[in-house]
Design a protein around this nucleic acid. Structure first.
Lengths: 248, 248
DNA sequence: AAGTGGTCTAGACCACTAT
DNA sequence: TAGTGGTCTAGACCACTTG
């Protein structure tokens, strides 16, 4: 999974040149050589650096664009993309405020602990068998009403600053926080949707009838190099769920 | 929706050449000039036909590949892709036979009528206000047990042969039937997922408890030119539902 | 061996952005 | 005006498939 985002440590001579260039650019972006929103070198400069033609560099960058890693802007340059999927629950849920407009739910961390993750989370984060991890219990609110309940697991390594941060300071969006405080950039994520039934706790939290259907979203978030940074599962009322797909 | 698949009737001179070539190829494929699984002309031949360089043709074909309209095969040629999404419910549901392997459900048409579609179906098929349409009630079975119930609407125009076909002759897969009997090729589709509750009828059909959660999939299927060919909605037990997405 | 798509080059000119 | 990405060309050679 996410193989195309994993850069080869040893650039493979058997691969086409544009693939090697692409892989090296991914490696450099993952290594923080250019921060999100920053411009990478011009196509001409890269062509010289890698000793290939501009056309080959263009093909490499075409792939980075397709992968969502960079964006091009004619006349300005090519920029490392800052992914923003703290709003991505909107893919699945349609939340409206009382006044009717779509709205970004407020985030609130209720609890934080250092604990041993269950096997699913441990495997997703590729942790050693008895490693502990940071666990956050978080809710998302619209008009003060809980619409999503989330359980979030983070490896200790790389996320130490979060272990001390005051809970109210977590704010509404976590991924910008990861980047600002921990230097960890979420580049891609993989999600699995299933339908479950609300137990008593979740039903009370979401103010729905016990046993009514809920959507459960499991997400693993990765950095540019394909390393798992976060595992979470989110639960919301199925009544608010709607999802559209294009098939071809 | 599906704008990128709709070919301009008048090729726009302001567009890049590779876009014009792409649009014309879509138009010709939609017009049936090359059937699914057939090869389109070679890149060199197309370059001559359109009086552009091979590189420009390649860029046009790159887009058709990205759109899922053709596939390339090195050394063999470029072929019109035959979309196969009668299996696409597997995107959403995981059905296993009694023996445990994943299995393609059997299809059975229970009922057929010529009737006025409801407003949703009418709008999806872009029919005139009082047009009638072909309505099929269909179930999908695994080991003799109904796992999905489907209501399908088709425009009369283009699907006349289906109005007379004996119900058992519909077979398991409808889209190959549309192509064989009616010359209609489904190229893309757009689906919307929601969660509902089983009413008494559906609960009995699916053998689940009344009011238990069901997944409702609304689908509009389009031909290569972006014309809607079919509108359907499918209902299955939410317990069998699972869906994975990659985000970037 | 002939023909196909896949890679790569070295340039030209255009469209857009910044200054 | 200078510099960026966007389009386009005309070729070369490679890798793969088919007869």
């Amino acid at each position: 999974m996410n193989n195309r985002l994993v850069s080869a440590e040893a650039p493979d001579d058997r691969l086409p040149r544009y693939q090697q260039v692409r892989d090296d650019l991914v490696r450099r972006i993952a290594g923080g050589e250019w921060a999100p929103e920053q411009a990478i070198p011009t196509e001409a400069a890269l062509a010289q650096t890698y000793a290939v033609s501009v056309g080959t560099v263009r093909k490499a960058i075409d792939q980075l664009v397709a992968d969502g890693i960079v964006t091009r802007s004619q006349g300005r340059g090519t920029f490392v993309r800052r992914p923003r999927f703290d709003t991505s629950m909107f893919r699945f849920f349609r939340f409206k405020s009382r006044s009717g407009e779509p709205v970004l739910p407020v985030g609130r961390v209720l609890r934080r602990e250092l604990a041993a993750p269950d096997e699913t989370a441990r495997a997703a984060l590729r942790l050693a068998p008895r490693d502990k991890a940071i666990h956050l219990s978080r809710v998302r609110l619209v008009d003060g009403q809980t619409v999503i309940a989330e359980e979030i697991w983070l490896p200790r390594e790389g996320f130490e600053p979060l272990a001390k941060l005051a809970l109210p300071d977590f704010g509404d969006l976590l991924y910008p926080l990861y980047e600002r405080l921990c230097g960890q950039v979420v580049a891609t994520a993989s999600e699995t949707l299933t339908v479950g039934q609300a137990d008593a706790d979740i039903a009370a939290l979401l103010r729905i009838a016990p046993a009514s259907p809920i959507i459960v979203v499991h997400r693993t978030a990765f950095d540019f190099a394909g390393k798992p940074l976060e595992w979470r599962f989110s639960r919301g009322a199925a009544a608010a769920f709607q999802y559209e797909v294009e098939i071809r």
